[in-house]
Design a protein around this nucleic acid. Structure first.
Lengths: 308, 308
DNA sequence: TTCGATCTATAGGAGATTCCTGTGGGCAGC
DNA sequence: GCTGCCCACAGGAATCTCCTATAGATCGAA
């Protein structure tokens, strides 16, 4: 089978006009070049050089071969460069899994960080739900992600980075005076996000479990997909809702006016962790994993400091 | 060093999604593919497939590599086709050496023959003079040619194909009544072609030798480069000339009006031969050699028949 | 949960390939 | 004719490639 090495030898011979010169240029012994070219001639079933006296004269076939041989070598060289540029994070796509509400915690800042360090890359932050993202991790479609615990998979490396607390949110200050108990939740008019994921979402399940113990089911009055929509509805006074302190923290000034919050008792927590498969991470994922870990831990410290 | 085989294995793996399937498709055992891809990863210093469970997931680097790997393989395939098409005389250049006046014997017809049989090829008929063409043959710049004898080179295969006779040409019928002798030549007003090649041209040297024996030098009154120019001058009655019967035969109706010819005594002959280096000829040269041999031999028979 | 099918990784060995050194022969220039 | 240079060839060492066999891991179905 035609080999690149043969083409290299052929081109060097063509360029330098002799096997000996080509051998010198390529750092081989002359018979090696001679043999490679002979093999090439044999495989192409044609003569590439007329052996005339002590010299070589390229044939028409050699002239026909040259541009394609060069093209093949150039393509291979280009292949090496392309891979290197992905390896060095100069180009390519950085893909990372995130939980649904990650945008309140880090999304824009994270992307800014990555782009600043690696201006040539594409960034994909994918994930509608922690469970779905974990599935992507298991199937290998994602290399790393930041999602809500629990992650019960011994093949995954799990690094907790932030513990967040669920709080009650309402536009009515009267309903925020006391600590909110599960039975308060059971009787409240609630708007909850994640309509499509209510079966698998960890927050929903925690909430449902707590309310269930009071003997009542968790039956939100309104269900929407998006956390911000739920907050907007709460701001209008149409219903109350629950959300994570981190979300409120992340929204900052953008939190709809008039909303206040109160802690739940017993408190409900959610822990987010950076998760990836065992084994070596690609440089791209390494970068994002480190950035996310730093940012989330910073956020964790900031929120704990506020509580204290 | 990166090899085509590795790229082939990589592409097959990418396409079929597993080493095993790629091995089946390429007709190898699975470990061979596995190893080739591993080598490729090692040489590119990157991971191309994440080994996840019992499957493989291509990495970003693999996606970056794919188009270049395909391009390299395509270039090699194209190289094979290009060479084959030259080998099969579908494209490429057919180069053949000819003596200066070959156009009177065969040039246009020969080209027509070649082009009819091989419509895609380029044709080059090169040669200003038999001695020059022979030098090209020796240096390997030409593979085969038809030139005037003698060819004193034991590495050449020489096939005589046509014997031609030198004749005296004049516009004055009075000077054509008798056989022309060397002393007639010595005293005649002559126009001779091949001004630039008078030192090496075999005709000139034969002629000079014959005249020299009469005690006089050969001093043509006029020298021009081209045979047809010499004949035009002779037709105007400005001088007489000599030329080969084959030239007159080849010119046919295009011979300038008013010219007649007479044989020389003793007769002077020139033999043309198809000449090429020992060893195998390229298919292209083989074709031309055969055509030229046929045509010239046919011409030889035609001219001998006329004489008889 | 277990079993069987399926896939990758690894080991070891047979066979090719590749590359080397050494040598012979042809050619050109002095 | 001598010398230098180049290609071709031979033989052997090192490397590469590919195979079979097997172990380890995973997934899906029973």
């Amino acid at each position: 089978m035609l080999s690149l090495h043969q083409l290299r030898c052929f081109l060097a011979t063509l360029e330098h006009g002799s096997f000996t010169a080509a051998a010198t240029a390529l750092g081989y012994a002359q018979p090696s070049i001679s043999e490679q070219v002979r093999l090439l001639e044999q495989q192409l079933d044609t003569t590439l050089f007329r052996r005339v006296g002590r010299g070589l004269v390229p044939t028409e076939a050699a002239r026909a071969l040259q541009p394609h041989a060069s093209a093949a070598l150039a393509a291979v060289a280009e292949a090496g460069r392309a891979v290197a540029s992905v390896r060095e994070l100069l180009t390519g796509t950085v893909r990372f899994g995130v939980f649904r509400t990650a945008r309140f915690y880090l999304a824009a800042d994270l992307v800014a960080d990555v782009l600043q360090r690696h201006p040539g890359v594409r960034v994909e932050l994918v994930g509608q739900n922690s469970a779905e993202v974990l599935e992507h991790l298991r199937k290998g479609r994602l290399e790393a992600a930041v999602i809500a615990l629990p992650v019960e998979d011994e093949n995954m490396v799990v690094t907790p980075v932030l513990r967040d607390e669920l709080v009650y949110v309402s536009a009515d200050p009267a309903r925020l005076h006391a600590r909110i108990t599960p039975s308060d939740l059971a009787s409240a008019q609630l708007v909850l996000p994640d309509a499509s994921w209510r079966e698998t979402d960890t927050t929903r399940r925690q909430l449902a479990q707590a309310v269930q113990r009071t003997g009542h089911p968790l039956r939100p009055r309104i269900e929407v997909e998006d956390t911000e929509t739920a907050l907007d509805i709460a701001a209008r006074g149409l219903a109350d809702t629950v959300t994570w302190r981190g979300v409120l923290h992340g929204l900052g000034d953008r939190l709809p006016a008039g909303l206040g919050w109160a802690p739940l008792r017993p408190a409900m927590y959610e822990t987010f962790a950076v998760v990836h498969r065992e084994g070596e991470l690609s440089p791209a994922s390494r970068v994002v994993v480190d950035l996310v870990t730093d940012r989330m831990r910073g956020l964790d410290r900031a929120m704990r400091a506020r509580t204290a």
